[in-house]
Amino acid sequence: MPLLSLSHVTQYTYRQPVAFGEHRIMVRPRESYDQHLVEATLDIDPPPSDLRWLQDVFGNSVAIATFKKRAKSLTIDSKVRVRHNPAPLQNVDIEDYARFYPFTYSSEEMPDLLRSIERQHLDPLRQIDHWARSFLDAGGRTDTLAMLSSMTASIKRDFTYVSRPEKGTQTPIETLTSRKGTCRDYAMLMIEAARALGFAARFVSGYVYSPTTRDTHVGGGNTHAWVRIYLPGSGWVEFDPTNGIIGNRGLIRVAVARDIYQAVPISGTWAGFPGSFLDMTVGVNISVEDPAAESYPQSRSI
């Protein structure tokens, strides 16, 4: 179980001092059976007049900062150390009734999964539906995990990754049509495609790292986005279409949500003269402290 050291620094700069409104900060990795938070600090400059923590409706850790002091910059510096336990792909053990598509979630699970199955984007020409169904086996039953793996691999193989520092996300149809986008664009496309087939899918915001020198994952240096799909027998399983990862290898979860706008790492307001805002910079650095990091079981990267 490798030990990781992670630094996430966000800085906003202004021409003259401005007043800061409430800021919502979601950068603390989630505690789970596969990732354990060893140490975490959150430094903010200027210091907030009040800083409180809460858990949102999805169980994500959120810091709420309020300020009294005006300043020409705002720096939010998160440092954590986390034990990560990547699970091998063979641990994805799907219940017999769900191993082949189509299937229906059990009556016990369906009420809690419904909102994660609902579509979030309009698809009047059913473009997403047609693309999603192209991964089904026309000759008979479709293996559930193989189909979702093929969809993940297709996005990595057939789409062009384009870094875009600006805020906002393309619609799934825009991503499908242009065949290019960022990790968050890819995640929203795959979520909508999975939901079109009746799967419960959620958006994940977090960090990606290369566990070994053999791995060359895309999306480092900033926050990363991918997908979790609910598979009976294994629960929520990670699918990263940007890197073709199935399972949690190289992926550190911070926020899980039904929609991307519920998982924004940092949001807040400021007040000052028009044109005061100059720039925002984000830097994410992850290092593997454990020298035995290459010895743990590996999940699939395609």
Rank of each mutant, 00 (worst) to 15 (best):
A138E: 12
R126P: 09
Q127F: 06
I128R: 00
R119A: 09
A153M: 10
A138Y: 06
D129G: 10
S150T: 14
T144C: 04
S150C: 14
F135C: 06
T144I: 03
S150P: 09
F135K: 03
S163Y: 15
D137I: 11
G139P: 02
S149F: 07
S150A: 15
T152F: 03
S154Q: 07
F159N: 01
S163K: 15
W131Q: 02
P124N: 02
D143Y: 07
V162F: 13
F135W: 14
S163W: 14
S134W: 10
Y161T: 10
D129C: 12
E118I: 05
H130E: 13
F135S: 05
S149H: 09
G140E: 06
L145H: 04
R157E: 14
I128C: 00
R119Y: 07
H121P: 01
Q127H: 06
D129R: 04
D143W: 06
H121F: 08
I128G: 00
D158Y: 12
L145A: 05
K156T: 07
L148N: 00
S134P: 04
L145T: 07
S149V: 10
L148Y: 03
A146T: 10
I155Q: 00
D137Y: 15
T160C: 11
W131F: 14
G139K: 05
Y161H: 13
D137M: 11
R141K: 14
S149T: 13
Q120R: 03
R133T: 08
M147K: 05
Q127P: 05
E118L: 07
R141C: 05
A132R: 00
M147T: 06
Q120N: 05
T142I: 05
L145S: 04
I155R: 00
R141Q: 11
A132T: 03
I155D: 00
I128P: 00
D158T: 15
S163I: 15
R157S: 14
D143L: 04
D137S: 13
K156L: 08
S134Y: 12
A146C: 07
L148T: 00
D143N: 12
F135N: 03
F159G: 03
D137K: 13
R133P: 04
S149E: 07
L125Q: 06
H121W: 11
D129K: 03
R141T: 09
S134T: 12
D123P: 02
D158V: 14
L148S: 01
Q120I: 02
R141L: 08
F159Y: 13
A138V: 15
H130F: 11
S149M: 09
D123W: 04
D123I: 01
R141H: 13
T160G: 06
Y161V: 10
D143S: 12
D123G: 04
